[in-house]
Write a protein that binds this DNA or RNA. Structure first.
Length: 117
DNA sequence: AGCATGACGCCTA
DNA sequence: ATAGGCGCCATGC
């Protein structure tokens, strides 16, 4: 057990909380776990994630709404199809409609104040 | 110990 | 809006 394992555990916890039909970014996750400069590490943590991990890693995209993890899902088009199947909207540019499908893990605690849980 | 690489992100031209 | 360069953090050789 090392610090990196803890980091990865936090990453998985955050990613697992991403609602269906929503997406988030590496930087956002990194910031949510207290390491806003470790966006690359978030990607690495997801990279070692097995397909049957139950972690919706396909909902994690780049800061610009661009799909970057296509190689792990059989291509960006595959990942895009997965997201679209969940209700995520895409722009003509080929990017995710961040305006409506962006999930902020950091924003979640505020929802608790409203009793959303 | 030093160099190169990577599911990223921000700054500058 | 697009393209290129630099920085961060950890890993591998």
């Amino acid at each position: 057990m090392t610090n990196e394992d803890d980091f990865r555990a936090l990453v998985y916890a955050v990613v697992a909380r991403i609602p269906e039909g929503k997406v988030t970014t590496y930087g956002l996750i990194a910031e949510a776990i207290g390491q806003p400069r470790a966006a690359r590490e978030v990607g690495r943590a997801l990279a070692v994630l097995p397909d049957d991990s139950g972690i919706p890693a396909h909902r994690v995209i780049g800061r610009d709404g661009k799909l970057v993890g296509g190689w792990a899902f059989g291509g960006e088009n595959v990942q895009r199809a997965m997201l679209e199947a969940e209700g995520v909207g895409f722009l003509p540019d080929g990017r995710v409609d961040m305006a409506h499908h962006l999930y902020d893990p950091i924003d979640r605690p505020q929802l608790r104040l409203f009793g959303e849980d």
